[in-house]
């Protein structure tokens, strides 16, 4: 399987529920922006199994952090279907815009590269990725590139920097 197929592999997907909501975890969509565990370690702790503790914070706080996840790696639904219809899910609206479309320079969102301490390069905006041979792989709006050298999904981050104890400040 190549690295772009891995991104769409669904077998690792998980669901975590409390009495009110269910959080959906799609690791293949994760770009390791680290927002979830930096802001709410009581719920999202990558060192713990299971890594999501739905009773670690109030539902409203969990929703707030899920909405901050820049991709659809983390999404949620109310367990009460009626509530899903009456509340606007801001995140789903945003994700509908998607990626992969052709964008002209007039519409293109400016690109920022955020360097994560002991972690990857998190890239947002409209940009194109080329492989070693110069072939255009795809147009993207969000991803993270490995900078520890240990990812098994090169050139993208797969979270392996935590396992090798990557120290970017050396």
């Amino acid at each position: 399987m190549d690295n772009f197929s891995k991104i769409t592999d669904d077998s690792q997907n998980r669901e975590y529920s409390n009495d009110e909501i269910t959080v959906f975890w799609k690791p293949g969509k994760c770009v390791h922006a680290t927002t979830c565990y930096k802001e709410l370690i009581e719920v999202f702790n990558p060192r713990r199994r299971p890594w999501v503790n739905m009773y670690g914070a109030p539902t409203e706080r969990i929703i707030e952090i899920v909405n901050k996840c820049p991709t659809e790696a983390l999404t949620y639904k109310w367990n009460d279907e009626a509530k899903n219809k009456e509340t606007i899910n801001l995140k789903n609206e945003r994700l509908k815009k998607g990626e992969g479309q052709n964008v002209t320079s007039q519409q293109a969102k400016p690109v920022t590269i955020q360097v994560m301490r002991d972690g990857p390069l998190v890239v947002q905006g409209d940009f194109e990725v080329f492989d070693e041979k110069g072939n255009k792989l795809k147009h993207m709006i969000m991803t993270s590139f490995c900078r520890c050298g240990a990812s098994n999904s090169q050139p993208f981050c797969d979270g392996y920097h935590r396992k090798i104890g990557f120290n970017s400040e050396k």
Binding site: V111, G125, G134
Partner: peptide, 13 residues
Amino acid sequence: MEISNNNIPEFKV
């Protein structure tokens, strides 16, 4: 190498 006709930033591995 493919050259694009716009100013969208390119990330080359």
